[in-house]
């Protein structure tokens, strides 16, 4: 029996879809059978991030409405054997699916896959309620900004109310140099405020833009800092103990020198 995990955030644009695509890719790379579910009905995006947009025939709403079988709607990734996508419908809206239907769907998926990752839409309405129905645990993506952390706090409250086990935090798009300058909240600041456990930190990385342009998740690229961070998070999801990356490692020589003398 596989595990169902939702990737959520409250605020839009913080990297839920990129995170889902990369974690799924990294889990599949290590040999797991993985299904990614795009729960953002009406604003389908996970397919383009994965480069699978041209292969969609049926979607999540078709499955839920009994228009096709689940197996027919699943798209196999072209690079990784174990990776599958269940795309969102583009022409419907969030109300075409109920939490009960999502629960049945994830129940069916967990028979087949070791990891089922649900890419949640932004917001706290119907789409979010659908995305969290039937999940075993939650990953919250937040960037080091006031609005993002505020929305993450609200989501933590809603997940608690839904009696989902304590969520784990992914701090996304961290810029270590800005943190050192005192111009960005640090990971510690965010954890202190939200009071939840950290599962990973993804540094800001231009590679993400490039890989998303190409439809190839950064987790596939050796040498991408964000890709490495995602691979580490995937291993932690699978239960491995992985030390946190030293995000200062690639900062400039002068920065390191200054820190050595306690001036930064």
């Amino acid at each position: 029996m596989g595990e169902v995990i939702v990737v959520t955030s409250g605020k839009g644009g913080v990297g839920k879809t990129t995170t889902t695509a990369n974690l799924g890719t990294a889990l599949a790379q290590s040999g797991a059978r993985v299904c990614l579910v795009d729960a953002d009905i009406g604003l389908r995006n996970l397919d383009v991030v994965l480069g699978l947009e041209n292969r969609i025939v049926y979607d999540l709403v078709d499955v839920v409405e009994g228009f096709c079988r689940l197996r027919q709607a699943l798209i196999r990734d072209k690079r990784l054997e174990g990776l599958h996508l269940l795309p969102a419908a583009q022409t419907k809206d969030k109300t075409s699916v109920t939490p009960e239907q999502m629960r049945e769907l994830t129940q069916e998926l967990r028979q087949e896959f070791e990891f089922v990752l649900i890419d949640s839409p932004a917001g706290i309405e119907q789409g979010f309620k659908n995305a969290i129905a039937g999940v075993d645990r939650a990953l919250i993506v937040a960037t080091p900004e006031v609005a993002s952390v505020r929305d993450a706090d609200r989501i933590i409250g809603l997940l608690e109310a839904a009696e989902i086990p304590p969520a784990k935090l992914i701090v996304n798009r961290l810029r270590p140099q800005m943190v050192r300058r005192g111009d960005m909240m640090s990971v510690e600041d965010i954890i202190d405020i939200l009071a939840i456990d950290l599962i990973g930190v993804v540094p800001e990385d231009e590679q993400i833009v490039v890989t998303t342009n190409r439809g190839e998740p950064a987790a596939l690229i050796q040498g991408s800092r964000a890709g490495e961070a995602y691979r580490n998070i995937a291993r932690r999801i699978a239960g491995e103990e992985v030390p946190f990356m030293d995000l200062d490692a690639n900062s400039g020589f002068l920065d390191r020198l200054r820190r050595m003398f306690g001036q930064a």
Binding site: E145, V146, V149, R150, V179, G182, D183, M184, M185, S186, D189, I193
Partner: peptide, 9 residues
């Protein structure tokens, strides 16, 4: 600005 962000948050 980080401290301001934390206080506002």
């Amino acid at each position: 600005s980080k401290q301001i962000a934390k206080d506002r948050l």
